[in-house]
Amino acid sequence: MKRTAIKRKEKYQELDGVLEKYKGRKGVLIKALSEAQEMYGFLSREVLIHIACELDVPLSEVTSVVSFYSLFKTEPSGRCHIEICSGTACYVKGMQDLLETLEEEINIKPGEVTGDGRFGLSTVNCVGACSAAPVVKIGDELIGDVDSKRLKQLLGKYGHD
């Protein structure tokens, strides 16, 4: 085994524990990638190479799956990730105002991270809480009936001054 490969093995011992159960099984790539992303927050190129080697799938195939699905991220987000729901009900009930508020307050657009790495922002295609629109997800917390004022309070709660 090459030295780089040995190094990689050492670094991803935790991930190997997850990959072990998927080895030799059909149709498990998406599951493996999701678990890896949960572990590291995003999928770096190195992690993808490791998964490709361990599951014996060409890297091109791994990358094609990662680039296809919007939930897979290849860049790290902020320590606190904000998702604004862009479903129809949320759109009709003013989710764009929330994006504007975030641009004014912490100066980021969807897909960006604040300079200090505190907040990351993305939109999500409907979380299914349409009756509480507009809906925002911060970390694992889902908050409904949000307006600009409430969003500012939430930013404060999550460490924005």
């Binding site: 149709g27 998406i30 094609s64 799956v65 699905y69 919007s70 897979f72 999500v124």
Partner: peptide, 23 residues
């Protein structure tokens, strides 16, 4: 099988590909 954020996967042939773990 948990999806990964692609609307087209609701279409049945796309859904089958996704269940098989590919794009």
């Amino acid at each position: 099988r948990v999806g990964a954020g692609a609307f087209v996967c609701g279409e049945e042939t796309a859904l089958i590909s996704s269940v098989e773990g590919t794009r």
